[in-house]
Amino acid sequence: MAVTGVILIGFVIGHLVGNLQIFQHPDHINGYGAFLHGLGPLLWAARLFLLATAGIHIWAATVLTLENRAARGTAYSVAHTIQATLSSRFMRWTGVVVLAFLLYHLAHFTLGTAQPATFKENLPHYTMTADYKIAGFPVVPAGAEVLDVYSMVVRGFQHPLVSLFYVIAVGLLSIHLLHGFDSMFQTLGWRSAKWANGLRRVAIAFCLVYFLANAAIPGAILLGKVRVPAAAVQEASTR
């Protein structure tokens, strides 16, 4: 559990950092997308690894839940909680909503079945105006024709309902991570009373930042702060 947790947290952080490029010139996120897709078998390896991790995580969570239910036997007639946090008690529910979100998200941005009209493959290709560099190395050169992830995201999130769902899901995910973060340290034996409070604060700060940063993306789009460049809009409408 803890191991899958570490990997999943790692992924969501990385993914968030990638996504925040939406606030930059479309070259960035589109270049990033192209770079990832250009990895070919490596991308697939990463995807499989991630899928497996998520699978194991969910499997472990299910087994854990079943075992733990069985371990109680007869339930108490008076339910009483002394200090367990809400986030720790609703891990299963927050997890399941996140899973539902994930499926939708994949349909949305990876498979294109949710909103085919604005799916990246159905949008005109984007021409890079500058080199996309990672650590100073140009990985996608200026002038390359790439999928327009930027527009896909922006158009997708222009639907308030879609955005709302994203925000809720990310909120729940943050809550899931709030306990998950703390819990991971305890499970790995890296937590002690001396710095438990500090750790808790770090966890809260992390989850808050994570949530705000994630919510900022649909938020900014809805508020019109991030828009599809005029040229692209025109091009799409003339098609």
């Binding site: 909680t81 367990a84 946090t85």
Partner: peptide, 11 residues
């Protein structure tokens, strides 16, 4: 012995 698993709830 059939005890449950710890999910670090500190109850």
């Amino acid at each position: 012995l059939g005890f449950g698993n710890c999910t670090n709830q500190y109850e």
